[in-house]
Design a protein around this nucleic acid. Structure first.
Lengths: 343, 343
DNA sequence: ACGCGTCATGTAACCGTTTACATAAGACGG
DNA sequence: CCGTCTTATGTAAACGGTTACATGACGCGT
């Protein structure tokens, strides 16, 4: 059964295709009677406009393309949710893909998407904005997501440096002398900024002995980092550049019989939903992940509507102190009453 | 800067548009020399075919539409990842949306997508397959995801009943006399099947006292369910219909000073990635989430390629026994050596 | 009754591809 | 050297919408 076209509807309603189009787009004046006649015809034929034909004519796709470095885990899940909410609200569609975190692949995916979307939201973790921009060909608005050196495109990011600085200060203030840092992957801008925040905070407080272990933002690398730290001289606190590594680290510590926060304090970054659920609940840097995605889409909408370039925005993350740094309610299985108060 | 069209390329290469099209689709015989000439012209103009125009002509979009009830949390994150991998591999695009779990909304979204995709993958948790099918208009292949009464469309699901049955048996075998069940939302097919599996297993083992608490698959409802159970007479084991509720429950139990698995055993369903990370690691029913998504897409590809209806497949989930039911290595902070062995 | 403006509707060009069909140019056997 | 077959390439008609412009009906002031 072939789908009905606008001509079928026009014939059924005994009007011209132009009139049908007008009714459908409620653009120009149409008599009430013809309007209802057309609507009835469209409904009875179960007519749905052919979006490709429409796009060809209007040069709009009503679609936002989104490329993320990965789709795995809670961080991206939240991000996608925020993006989806925004596109839905605006009556837009969401074309999603990921780049495996590979800049070259990102450019390829971007080229493939470029003719199918009105604007793109891209999270690039590397300093590849120009490459992406080139792949996009210049006529499609591009909004960047996440930290990185900003080129000419609006960028929605969080202040990683400030977040890491604040967290490090928090650990210093809690009296931890030696604070180790589990870093993110080399070359990743967010990771670099967080590392810099950690270093600058140490320096600002006259602490000299930085201790940095490599990681890759994955849970397993947090586990390995913990092992590496345990093999040397134990620090008083561990600050992981993201929550997943902190959680891996937490697990390794627990297996080694080391109590958090009693023996060692532990902090993460991102405040992904799980952070609250691990034991002890993880102190972390709160990032409005979904909001970041939502605003990036809104920025696209703005650019498309006004033609103006759109403006970047940096979110200042907030410290979320939970039990893993001993700064809040403890969450050990025992030692609390039924209301969750520390006994 | 207007994007180049096929005519611009044709002009630059001094050939006809048909020849350019042939080169681009490597369809028919083209002389090597003209081929290279066209390719050079296309590259120099940074030509990217207008996909809407192509779709209009070919009646294909090379896009798979996906509608999920929700985008929140690890389960959907995994599912999307599996779907994305499959579409990418096949050179397809992924148009994503969610339905808030609302059948009416799902139908609306489906109508909006219908002209933009070649096939749809829909996860419906209710028995609304016919409604969806109607909204789709019949010419777009539809593949269902997740449990439910199957209509005429292929469906990729897991055997919820078998999974819940196996888990309940596991708990019975472990000597737990009174096993409570935290159910999923009413009307949700998966939830209903899991509940039935629990009941049938109890019956099969001559257990009479079932104890079912309502839940909605959210973490908070698991917490509330725990509170409800604690208010009554405590069961020996709690089986939550999904992992998120189990995790909420776990947290509430911990806050109440009840030890898992020492005082009470706890099990979930889904084996979402976090399940391993909570403390104690959660015994659960392992579902190949990403694989489910991948195969659904492959099914779409098959239908589109062959024109044949495609076949359903039910995955048998597997029991994943971890510490929360005391069935595996304990993961309490103390009492273990550095290799993770129980002391 | 006439001219004119207004407004609903129709006509047809255009958007950028693909592709059936037409055509021109060799190749080749007789 | 001519017909025929093959093969590379060109021409133009779809595909299904939108929209500028044309048209015709109608109301209204004079």
């Amino acid at each position: 059964m072939k789908n009905a076209t606008i001509r079928d509807v026009a014939k059924a309603a005994d009007v011209s295709v132009a009139t049908v189009s007008r009714v459908l787009n409620s653009s120009e004046a149409v008599t009430e009677s013809t309007r209802t006649r057309v609507e009835a015809a469209a409904a009875s034929l179960d007519y749905v406009p052919h979006s490709a034909a429409r796009s060809l004519s209007t040069r709009r796709t009503d679609t936002i393309g989104v490329i993320l470095p990965d789709l795995h885990g809670e961080f991206f899940s939240e991000l996608i949710r925020g993006i989806d909410v925004a596109t839905r609200t605006r009556g837009l569609h969401l074309l999603l893909s990921h780049s495996h975190g590979d800049p070259v692949e990102a450019a390829t995916v971007l080229r493939a998407m470029r003719s199918r979307v009105d604007a793109m939201v891209v999270m690039s973790l590397y300093a590849d904005e120009e490459v992406l921009s080139a792949a996009l060909g210049g006529s499609t608005p591009l909004v960047m997501l996440g930290g990185g050196a900003s080129g000419g495109h609006p960028r929605f990011a969080i202040d990683n440096h400030a977040g890491a600085f604040a967290m490090t200060e928090h650990l210093v203030a809690a009296g931890h002398g030696r604070i180790a840092f589990i870093a993110g992957p080399a070359g990743n801008m967010e990771a670099a900024q967080r590392l810099a925040g950690y270093r600058d905070a140490l320096a600002a407080h006259g602490q000299t002995g930085e201790q940095v272990v490599e990681g890759d933002f994955g849970e397993e690398s947090g586990r390995l980092a913990a092992a590496a730290l345990l093999a040397g001289s134990m620090p008083d606190a561990i600050f992981a550049a993201n929550d997943m590594m902190a959680i891996g680290c937490l697990q390794a510590l627990r297996e080694a019989g080391i109590r958090v926060p009693d023996d060692i304090a532990l902090a993460g970054f991102d405040d992904i939903p799980i952070a609250r659920f691990v034991d002890p609940p993880l102190t972390t840097v709160g990032v409005p992940i979904a909001e970041l995605g939502r605003q990036a889409v809104e920025c696209c909408v703005g650019i498309l509507a006004t033609g103006e370039p759109g403006t970047s925005r940096t979110f200042t993350p907030e410290l979320v102190v939970r039990a893993s740094t001993g700064g809040a309610v403890s969450a050990r299985p025992k030692g609390r009453n039924s209301r969750g108060e520390v006994t």
